[in-house]
Design a protein around this nucleic acid. Structure first.
Lengths: 226, 226
DNA sequence: ACCTGAACACCGTTCAAGT
DNA sequence: ACCTGAACACCGTTCAAGT
């Protein structure tokens, strides 16, 4: 005897891990990290909390699975046909854009160093180092430097997205930050106060890529020596 | 009429922002990120929740203040007498060691891109770039690359510390990770499976410094060109 | 001005009970 | 085997009331 209701969706398909993960992604995208609760999830899936626990162990596993899904999709649209440095840039930019679209992924990556999504990132980045003529012994260091940099940027993207001002008006957000920076004591903060002027209109994506290029330049300087 | 109790400390000093922040740091160090709750804090300070809210706006502000305190202490033991690259390494290592001792700081840094602790890190890192002959226009990119790298490493340190196995036995922890990595399909994960052998016995601090040196090498390659 | 602590509106997770 | 949903043990935050 299904009720006729406007909001409550009748469940047509059986519950499954995949359906739960999809619903979780939709919630996270729509409401942000705080939007994913068992209450919201059970409402959306028209089920009880216990049903979700039947398919996934706990909230951490839901978050890991959603992150895997987005990272996997982001990494597998990248082709491998380009020169190694370009391929590496494409991988990094693919990740950046995915986290830009799903900022909660950025926060999640920093919480799971050795889980599936991170291992996949490690592989897709590290796999290009041989072609870049990075010595075998330096490849672990090189890959982890690149990965840690990506994770750092990702976490900051996630934090910025959490800021309510940022969601509405990015220019206003940057202006506020720039204001705070230029209000600091120039005697104690000569660098930051000078930087404040450069903040408005700056491009996160371009800056991200500049960092990748800087690390690649360091690798090139090292690789040349052997 | 003070009760005579073994555990409950009678409060001798008045409550203050400083006392609350110190108590919060002790809780975070002793119990980890999940140990800081208003219940635990009010018990330790022998007060009520409202008293804490009188001195600090909310939990985020407590976390920001504790992070400021640790970062400030870490950055201000570093002298400036060395060559610019060495000074920069000293700043980075000071941060690494502080986060190693207080892993919750690592998690917190990734949540507050433009707050006091991060601005101070930005300043202490960026302030050496002029001496490193990094062109003015590249200093913003260079500083943010270094800072993002540090934040990435910091967040992974925090995540590792959260892992219960890690707390007890680091070798066992690395062995488990290495096992998971070598269990992957070498066809899909050639890089990661090969890396598994290098994981046991590897030194996080050394690896962190190698990343800093890699970025510095990139900067040197860029600076030389002008 | 500063503090108390009960009450409120949430959480994630468990589990007896249903089918 | 799979699902339900009330109950449990927590949270951060508020606020009327005290001093």
């Amino acid at each position: 005897m299904p009720r006729e209701s406007v909001r409550a969706e009748r469940r047509t398909e059986a519950l499954s891990r995949e359906r739960i993960v999809q619903a979780a992604i939709e919630l996270l995208d729509a409401e942000g990290e705080s939007g994913l609760t068992f209450r919201a999830l059970t409402t959306r899936l028209a089920t009880g909390a216990g049903a979700i626990y039947w398919h996934l162990a706990n909230k951490d596993e839901i978050l890991a699975a959603t992150t895997d899904f987005i990272v996997d999709a982001a990494l597998n649209v990248v082709g491998d046909e380009a020169a190694p440095a370009d391929a590496l840039r494409a991988v990094a930019l693919g990740l950046f854009d995915a986290i830009d679209a799903h900022p909660w992924v950025g926060a999640q990556l920093s919480r799971e160093p050795w889980q599936a999504a991170m291992l996949q990132i490690f592989e897709r980045i590290g796999g290009h180092l041989e072609a870049l003529r990075v010595p075998q012994k330096a490849q672990f260091f090189a890959a982890s430097t690149l990965v840690n940099y990506v994770v750092g940027v990702a976490s900051q993207e996630a934090a910025n997205a959490r800021n309510p001002v940022h969601g509405g008006d990015r220019d206003a957000f940057l202006a506020i930050i720039a204001g705070k920076m230029s209000a600091l004591d120039p005697g104690k903060y000569p660098f930051v106060t000078r930087l404040a002027a450069e903040l408005p209109g700056h491009d996160d994506r371009e800056q991200f890529l500049a960092g990748i290029d800087l690390i690649l330049a360091g690798l090139a300087a090292t690789a040349v020596k052997r």
